[in-house]
């Protein structure tokens, strides 16, 4: 078991090295364009040269990477050109919004995926299964930004239930806070629940053919109890894997929703910095979201093993 964790930790370490290296070299190994692109099309040759100097583009690349990495490890992501402050501070201040959005959207997508997945698996091929499955298939073709606009149109312009944009921090009251995040979270959920529902449905169909489900039925237990208490947990391993991948993706993918709904999260910080050509901030955001993505995936990988006592046993026995 310890050997397995060590192996996974080693892998995590290498991926982190790769990820930081790619982030770093992306700027530093690309042709002279980089400085030009950062400076923007209206810049003079002098400005470009200054940026090149600022970035230290003339020193040895490996030395620069190590110096930079050393600073990053200490939490120093540099200083923002535009915001006139530390990049790390800006990221930390935006983080709660993104995390809150993420948690809420994950909850909402599970609230959609689990009941529908279970109902469809209970009567596969039935009218309700066909209806839900084809709706889900159709929803896979709706990009998240289209979903966001559609929901804004329905819920804020047409029905006037929820605000279309703007964010109320928790300090403004938990109710206002959640209300301002509900539509963005629902936008993400409406797109992300589909793969969750599909894997749960297919795994559950397999589980429902197991003997212990027959045994549970022979005990005279009601169908909803059997579905949720006996069948759900053994059917949810793939669901959790996909969910983990999604959480990772959302860390990097929340920028679209944050932009549509004008939420002050990490994603919007990144987009804003790109438009503002705030080099240090862009690098910091990319590095942060990438590392968050890698670590979330690692955590899910570990969690996965602990959820199923059979896998836990394999790991303890050392067969894993």
């Amino acid at each position: 078991m310890i050997k397995l964790i060590a192996k996974k930790l080693l892998r995590l370490f290498f991926i982190l090295i790769a990820v930081t290296a790619i982030t770093f070299f992306m700027v530093n190994l690309l042709p002279g364009d980089a400085a030009y692109n950062i400076a923007g099309p209206d810049s003079t040759a002098e400005e470009i040269e200054n940026i090149r100097k600022d970035l230290g583009l003339n020193e040895n690349v490996v030395v620069r990477y190590l110096n930079w990495l050393f600073k990053v490890v200490k939490g120093d992501l540099g200083e923002s050109l535009l915001a006139r402050g530390l990049v790390s501070r800006a990221i930390v201040s935006r983080l709660p919004v993104t995390i809150e959005l993420l948690v809420l959207s994950v909850l909402l997508s599970l609230m959609l995926a689990i009941p529908f997945g279970v109902i469809c698996a209970y009567k596969p091929g039935s009218l309700i299964d066909k209806a839900v499955s084809s709706t889900a298939f159709g929803m896979m073709a709706v990009p998240v930004f289209v979903m966001g606009i559609a929901l804004i149109y329905i819920f804020s312009i047409h029905l006037r239930w929820l605000p279309a944009t703007g964010f109320s921090p928790i300090s403004a009251g938990i109710f206002a806070n959640i209300k301002s995040l509900l539509l963005p979270a629902f936008t993400i959920a409406m797109v992300e629940w589909v793969p969750l529902m599909r894997v749960l449905r297919s795994d559950m169909i397999t589980t429902l053919q197991e003997n212990y489900i027959l045994m549970a039925r022979s005990k005279g237990l009601p169908a909803p109890y059997i579905l949720f208490r006996h069948a759900l947990q053994p059917s949810s391993l793939t669901l959790i894997t996909i969910l983990g991948l999604q959480i990772g993706h959302l860390f990097g993918g929340s920028m679209i929703v944050e932009t549509i709904f004008a939420l002050p999260g990490i994603g919007r910080l990144l987009i804003g910095s790109i438009f503002g050509r705030d080099y240090a901030m862009v690098q910091g955001c990319i590095l942060f979201t990438t590392i968050a993505y890698v670590i979330v995936n690692f955590a899910v990988d570990m969690l996965y093993a602990f959820l199923d006592p059979r896998i836990r046993k394999q790991m303890v026995d050392g067969h894993g």
Partner: peptide, 13 residues
């Protein structure tokens, strides 16, 4: 390692 990157972020970068 490439897959370990969040796609959209890498694309933006």
């Amino acid at each position: 390692s490439i897959l370990a990157f969040p796609g959209l972020v890498l694309l933006l970068a």
